[in-house]
Design a protein around this nucleic acid. Structure first.
Lengths: 249, 249
DNA sequence: TAGGGGAACTTGTACAAACAAGGCCAGACC
DNA sequence: GGTCTGGCCTTGTTTGTACAAGTTCCCCTA
């Protein structure tokens, strides 16, 4: 596996920061110095630095030296998308269980979102450190339904299973995050009172080619999971939205 | 105000997508074609395309043509940070009112976060479309307190006011998002029942130089505001976090 | 007709060079 | 002592070139 030069330079610089060799607030060497150190062109070094800027580790302004801003980096798309990959990467004990699974006709909203007349609906309960923390209500597009149905009900990582069986890679997603009161089913599954606060994450995911794969509504028990966003000017993937403009309901 | 070439090219391409001239799923022209169209070097065109990839509008894989993924772009960092700028940009009626404001000694956690022994604590209520939707509990570092205190209590945009008076630009922020039950004060101010779900956003903001400016806890009434995150592989600013690792309590 | 092999195409990576734009600091000046 | 200015330093932008790596699709073959 050949890794790009700028990726390796970025990894080295990231290590320097994470190890504390470049403490928060310190200035990084200049483009020219780094280019000399790594025997690379300035453009290549700048590409590496752009990675760290996007991760929120360093700040950059024209004319001034680059500054170390933080020591914890934004994690991968995979970790955002897959509960299992996130939990595993952070060393948590976790599991998942399919509670219900059925094919049905898509509602008009789902048909529009997933470009699919038939869908597979799955209800899944996830635990973290042996506590139930997440109810997932996922709707898969028809073309991927068969691959999902053969996954064992207690499979930990659906993302991983789909990649292994079909080579599918989730490449893009849109996520809406808000707070909702627990419904009767939520309350029973998560062991909380009805009406207590849940963190809701709705998302639509597509393949690299832009083909819709799934639409999901996940509800986290309050206090169990927090979303963290780190951003600088120029790298800003988050917006607020009033009311429920998309998703209807 | 000189705008970079690649920014203008990115803006034109973005317009094509937002106007529907490049519908979702369609392929963009190749680097070479775009370079010819804009009489720019391929590198410049690629820089423009990188902007759109970061915004989640288009997808890109080596060897394959670029594809339009979405039609609504992630908005600016300023809009994420400032309620007023977001509301104004989206044409909403809004207002703000300071309810309480006092200087005090920083708690040890605040002193660590803001690197300041004395702080200014402000309680602010925001309305959207004449409905109370947001309670802001903000703690400003001592060095900026004086500039905040002279802002009129009914000022709509603190961000703007601080920029006008001191030239301060918020450059960096970390945001933690979760769900919490409304406390007694929250319930009274927002007109909801105690214990009903609120969307909580905690953040620490710094200047471009990495100097801490403020630490804030904002609580949104459920249903009033939704956070939206759009991401692709490679551009991923969001992570989940278990429990309350940071911020204590 | 189904499948394999390529050729052509497209995006990714890397290097080199030059100028623009903004920050920083020291020395000059009031 | 304080302020201002100019030069130096550093990052930002742009162009040009070359090759690597992955995708697509047509054509040839079995």
């Amino acid at each position: 596996m050949m890794v790009a030069r700028y990726e390796r330079i970025a990894a080295e610089l990231r290590d320097d920061i994470l190890r504390g060799e470049q403490p928060v607030g310190s200035t990084l060497p200049t483009d020219a110095e780094l280019a000399a150190r790594y025997s690379a062109a300035r453009g290549t070094v700048r590409q590496a630095l752009a990675v760290l800027v996007a991760e929120g580790l360093i700040g950059s302004r024209q004319g001034a030296r680059r500054i170390v801003l933080g020591t914890s980096r934004s994690q991968s798309f995979a970790e955002l998308h897959s509960f299992a990959q996130w939990a595993k990467a952070n060393g948590y004990r976790f599991s998942g269980q399919v509670l219900r699974q059925q094919r049905r006709r898509a509602t008009s909203a789902e048909a529009a979102r997933l470009a699919s007349p038939e869908v597979l609906e799955v209800l899944r309960l996830r635990t973290l450190e042996d506590e139930p923390v997440l109810v997932e209500r996922t709707v898969y597009a028809g073309w991927i339904a068969a691959a999902v149905e053969v996954i064992p009900p207690d499979c930990d990582s659906i993302t991983q299973a789909l990649f292994d069986s079909t080579g599918l890679v989730f490449a893009y997603g849109e996520h809406l995050i808000d707070a909702v009161p627990a419904g009767a089913q939520d309350a029973r599954l998560l062991g909380v009172r009805r009406g207590s606060p849940l963190l809701r994450q709705r998302r639509v995911t597509t393949t690299q080619e832009g083909r819709p794969v799934e639409s999901s509504e996940d509800r986290y028990r309050a206090g169990s999971v927090t979303f963290s966003i780190r951003n600088s000017i120029g790298a800003n993937p988050l917006v607020r939205q009033a009311g429920d403009l998309r998703f209807g309901a």
